[in-house]
Every structure is written in C-alpha cells, then in structure tokens.
C-alpha cells in the first residue's frame, strides 16, 4: 500500500461516487429526447438519492437481516470495485487489485445479496425478480468471462491497472481487435445494468420486471444505496469500455493538471457512451426473456473470434 496507490484509491473512488449519478440522468435525458419528451434534469438522480435518504425505511415483517444488510453490501462492493477500474490516474497495481475476475466477482456479491433480499420479503415479485436476475446473470457469465479473456489475451494482462498503464497515452485502442471486444463489452454493459432490450428500468409491470422486481421491497435509505450502487456499477462498466476503446487521457504520473484534464476528458468520454446507450435503448424493443440467450451468443461469438484473430494475426 504505497502512497500513489492511496491517492489513486481516494481519487478514483471519489470521482466515481461523484460522477455516477450524472450518467444515469444523462441516459434518461437522451431517451426522453428520443421519445420527444423533455426529460429530467441532469442532476435528477442526485436529487432522487438525496430524497430517498431522508425518507423512512419500511421493512416487511417477513424480512430478516438479509434485507437490512443487502444495501450496505451492494454499495460497499460497488465502491470497492471502483478501485479496480482506473478513470483518471493509473498507479502501479498493488496486491493484485485491478484483477478482472475479482472485479467481476465483487459485482457478483452485490447481485447475490440483492437476489436474496428479493426472496426475503416473501413477495412473489421479489422471487420472480431474483430468479430472472440470477438466470440472466448465469447465462451472460460465459460471455463476460470470455470477453475478459479476450481482453487479457490482447492486452497480455489480467489486471485493469496494468492494461490501463500499457495503453495510457495512446490515442487509439492498442489493437484493432479491441473494437470487437468493445462490441461484446457493450452488450455486457447493457445486460449488467438491466437496460432494454434485456430489462426495462422504467417499468413496473410484473411480466417484464427483472431488476426492479427484485428491489421492489426496498425503500428509503436502502433504496438510495441500491440505486447509487447501480449507478456506480454502470459508470465502472462505461469506464472499462472507455479503457478499451478510448484509452487516451489517462495519466500515469501524478499531477494536478493532468488529473483535472483526465477528469474533464472522462466526463466527455462517458457522456459519449451514455448517449450511445440512450440512443441504443430508444431504438430497441424489449426482448422476450427466453430469446435473450441469442443476444448473449452474439457477444460470445465476438469474443471468441477476438481471441482467435489476436493469436493468428
């Protein structure tokens, strides 16, 4: 645990915490515009979280400690995961932090507890949500892992920090095959954040709900934490995409100007991807649950292809 790393930790986590709700709102805005609506303001998510934090928390009488613990776990896992993806400054990796698989599994813990809390209240909605969420997560998992494997093969490292250090300063992706990986990563992003065509974050219709059904029983500060955790997760996934496709702007040497520049640059890059997500969502209809595996297969196919191309090229 050396000095630069502690600075990195504080900087990265602070920046992620700060900026995450912004992208959430941005996507909503883009979608609203695409539908011809005005849409909420860019700071709406901040307001919502603040509002929820002030509200009283309602627990089901059937629920147990699982319900009470889950929000904390979700948020802290998201925060810890934020250490794994550099947004601004890349230090030397320490103690294996930045490991891609560990990152994936940290997000997994959050999902695990969330699914449990969905079952905890004894509501049928929660059950349906947990069941679907876990099933979808299971089906997408091979894709995610193979994408990461492709990434690791291309970048010759298993650590986001190392990958970032290698590519930092480059204008374009390290290799053209990164674009293929980007496509797969984008699909994973859509799935992991529960967006159309996989899930619709705006609906509360029991036939289509996945994620929302699972957190239906959450309220007040707990809901706030879960929402916040969701926003952080989304930002982190966007950051990975940025890392792969647009690596320029990351600094490897610590300087105030460099970091400020990187911040501004990341906001821009993140916004670009958020806009793409918003437009993508607007142009799609939600798919049937059981036709989703086909979508995942596409991503899987891309990643496998990447590995082969990279090796034989």
């Amino acid at each position: 645990m050396n000095g630069p790393f502690i600075i990195f930790a504080l900087l990265n986590v602070g920046f992620v915490l700060l900026i995450s709700p912004l992208f959430m709102s941005l996507i909503k805005k883009v979608k609203a515009r695409a539908q011809g609506r005005c849409g909420p303001g860019l700071f709406q998510t901040y307001y919502t979280i603040a509002k929820l934090l002030r509200k009283e928390t309602v627990y089901s009488s059937a629920s147990s400690w699982v319900m009470r613990v889950t929000p904390y776990v979700c948020l802290s896992m998201a925060v810890v995961a934020a250490l794994f993806v550099p947004l601004l400054y890349v230090p030397e990796p320490v103690a294996g932090i930045g490991n891609v698989i560990l990152f994936l599994y940290l997000l997994g813990i959050a999902r695990f507890f969330m699914a449990l809390s969905g079952l905890d209240a004894g509501s049928a909605f929660g059950g349906i949500g947990s069941s679907r969420e876990m099933s979808l997560a299971a089906v997408i998992e091979p894709t995610s892992i193979v994408v990461l494997a492709a990434l690791a093969v291309v970048a010759r490292s298993l650590n986001f920090l190392e990958i970032a250090r290698d590519s930092a300063g480059m204008l374009f992706p390290v290799s053209a095959t990164m674009i293929l990986i980007g496509v797969s990563l984008f699909i994973i992003l859509i799935v992991e954040t529960g967006r159309i065509p996989v899930d619709n974050p705006e609906t509360h219709l029991e036939l289509t709900m996945v994620h929302e059904a699972m957190v239906l029983e959450q309220s007040g500060r707990n809901l706030a934490m879960i929402e916040y955790a969701g926003a952080i997760k989304q930002t982190l996934l966007i950051a990975i995409l940025v890392l792969v496709l647009m690596p320029f702007g990351l600094v490897t040497e610590l300087s105030v100007a460099g970091v400020l520049f990187a911040m501004a640059l990341f906001v821009v890059k993140g916004s670009v991807i958020s806009v793409i997500i918003g437009l993508f969502e607007s142009s799609m209809a939600k798919m049937r649950l059981f036709s989703l595996p086909n979508l995942f297969i596409i991503a899987f196919f891309f990643s496998v292809l990447t590995i082969f191309i990279e090796v034989f090229a």
Partner: peptide, 24 residues
C-alpha cells in the same frame, strides 16, 4: 469500505424505520 458506508449512511440518512406486511 463497509464501515465507511455504514458511518456515512448513519450520519446522513434518516433513521426512521417501520415494519409492516409485505406489499401484496
């Protein structure tokens, strides 16, 4: 992190809770 989150949430959020039947 967990400790920090708990502390921060304790410090900032409302502590009111209510136990009631699951919404059905």
């Amino acid at each position: 992190t967990l400790g920090a989150v708990v502390l921060v949430v304790r410090a900032t959020a409302s502590r009111e809770t209510r136990v009631t039947e699951t919404w059905g």
